[in-house]
């Protein structure tokens, strides 16, 4: 089984400081590390390889010379091969162009890997775009936000049991077979601490560098403005609203209103019928609530 892992060097969250007044990010105080979710992606890939007993893990990054650090970490943790893509103009690339470059690199091999792992999002811009875009460019199915992963053999084939994180604490359980792309959440596992011999070997390893522009299948729209930054600021938690109950209510009802925070249970309605009826019902619902 061949597994590829896409890694990014990103400032460690705890080293990011946003000036509360100016909103400026102090880049001088950044500590650049292997993005936390990417480290989990790599760990997941290594565990799968170890469990299956065969296969290889290929770690790939796109970044300047300093970002070789993350490949050395990958090598120390157990990646079999590593490679860095870079071209000076890549400093201005958005996530779609980066994904196109990664796709072109993976297509340059005789066949695509069986599995591709990415971190769900990076600690700096957290757009969460590169993984899904890479899957789209390669025409692969994808599962994002993986927080649980188990592998088993099913009649000689690899079967993955995947738990996905959804909004509001919901979870989704899926069964999947390769080829597939997975983007991994940073809580999936605890990345290993490399042994000293592996660490030493990684520190001294030679790293292959490729120019993505020289890849035959690299197609990107360099003129497209992918992202526009409107504002950068420290997140402020929403003010906590205290409910003042209606004084017309009885004490019992007022206490009830206070302890429930004034919310009633979320209401769900299950509609059954033919697709046409369901569509009509949906449109009626949206109109009623003023969405359309």
């Amino acid at each position: 089984m061949r597994i590829a892992v896409c890694l990014k060097q990103a400032p460690d969250c705890s080293s990011v400081y946003v000036d509360p007044v100016s909103g400026e990010v102090d880049t001088e105080r950044f500590v650049q590390t292997l993005n936390a979710a990417d480290a989990c992606a790599l760990e997941a890939a290594l565990r799968l390889k170890e469990q299956s007993g065969t296969g290889s893990v290929f770690a790939l990054t796109l970044g300047p010379g300093e970002s070789e650090e993350v490949l050395r970490v990958a090598l120390a943790m157990g990646a079999d091969t590593i490679e860095r893509l870079w071209h000076p103009s890549a400093a201005d690339w958005g996530p779609l162009t980066i994904a196109a470059a990664l796709a072109a690199r993976l297509r340059a091999d005789p066949s695509l890997p069986d599995l591709i792992f990415c971190g769900e999002q990076s600690s700096d811009w957290a757009s969460g775009t590169v993984g899904p875009a890479l899957a789209a460019y390669l025409g692969l199915p994808q599962i994002t936000g993986v927080i649980g992963l188990e592998a088993q053999q099913d009649s000689g084939q690899l079967l993955l049991r995947v738990t996905r994180r959804l909004e509001r604490g919901y979870r989704e359980r899926l069964l999947a077979r390769p080829p597939l792309l997975l983007t991994v959440h940073e809580t999936l596992n605890e990345p290993r601490y490399p042994s000293l011999p592996a660490h030493l070997a990684a520190l001294q390893a030679m790293i292959t560098v490729r120019d993505p522009l020289s890849l035959p299948q690299f197609a990107a729209d360099f003129e497209a403005e992918e992202t526009t930054i409107v504002e950068v600021r420290t997140p402020r938690p929403r003010p906590h609203r205290l409910l003042i109950p209606d004084s017309q209510l009885s004490p019992f009802e007022r206490i009830g209103a206070i302890i429930t925070g004034g919310t009633s249970r979320r209401q769900a309605r299950l509609v059954e019928g033919s697709p046409e009826e369901l569509a009509h019902e949906l449109v009626r619902f949206l109109k009623e609530r003023g969405f359309v």
């Binding site: 460690d12 705890s14 080293s15 400081y17 105080r29 500590v31 605890e190």
Partner: peptide, 9 residues
Amino acid sequence: ELVRFKVDK
């Protein structure tokens, strides 16, 4: 808060 910590378990 101004100091960077990488907290080991």
